[in-house]
Simulated scan of single mutants.
Amino acid sequence: MKNIVLMTMLALLCACGGSNDDGSSKATYSSCKIISSQALMAADRDKDLSQCWNAPGNGYESQGDALQWCEKQINSYISNNYLIGHTVTYAVESTYCK
């Protein structure tokens, strides 16, 4: 009976961990990207939607930490590229930027 329980636990652990197809860890948040933009000009919206940043190291285990890091990336990007800011929506993902 102990062997069955142990094997079941090992199978569950293996299913939860591991890597995504791109080599990033399924257990961490590895990238930040803009998923929508309210920029007035279509070219600016397209530029925004092409932005993506890979997390440092192996990524963030905590979603909260990943979102804080992502927000800093977004704020820096907006302030460095636009005189007048606009609203963007962003997300963190477990995969690297494509």
Rank of each mutant, 00 (worst) to 15 (best):
S94A: 13
C52H: 02
E61S: 09
L10W: 13
S25R: 13
A66T: 02
S62Y: 06
I84P: 05
I35N: 06
L49M: 02
I84M: 10
Y77G: 06
S79H: 00
M7R: 14
S79F: 02
S79R: 15
N75G: 14
S25P: 09
S50V: 01
G85T: 09
E93W: 00
Y96N: 04
M1Y: 12
Q51M: 07
Q38S: 15
E61P: 06
P56D: 03
C14G: 12
Y82K: 06
I78H: 02
A15R: 07
Y90F: 14
A55R: 03
E71I: 12
I74G: 01
V5D: 01
N80R: 08
S62E: 02
K72E: 08
I34W: 07
I74H: 07
K72I: 07
E71K: 14
I78V: 09
G64P: 04
V88D: 09
K33F: 07
K72Y: 00
Y29E: 06
A55T: 04
A42H: 13
K98F: 12
K33S: 12
S19M: 10
N54H: 02
I74M: 02
L40P: 01
I4V: 14
M9H: 12
A15Y: 06
I78F: 00
I35F: 04
G18L: 06
W53R: 03
S94K: 02
D65C: 02
G59A: 05
I35Q: 09
V5Y: 03
C97M: 08
P56Y: 07
V92M: 03
P56T: 04
Y90W: 05
T87I: 08
Y29M: 13
A91C: 08
A42M: 11
A11S: 15
I4S: 14
G59K: 00
S36A: 08
L67M: 12
C16Y: 01
N80E: 07
L6Q: 15
I74F: 04
C16T: 02
Y96Q: 08
G64M: 08
I74K: 00
I74T: 03
L83E: 07
A91R: 08
K26R: 15
T87G: 05
G23D: 10
C97L: 03
I35G: 01
I34R: 11
I34S: 06
Y29Q: 08
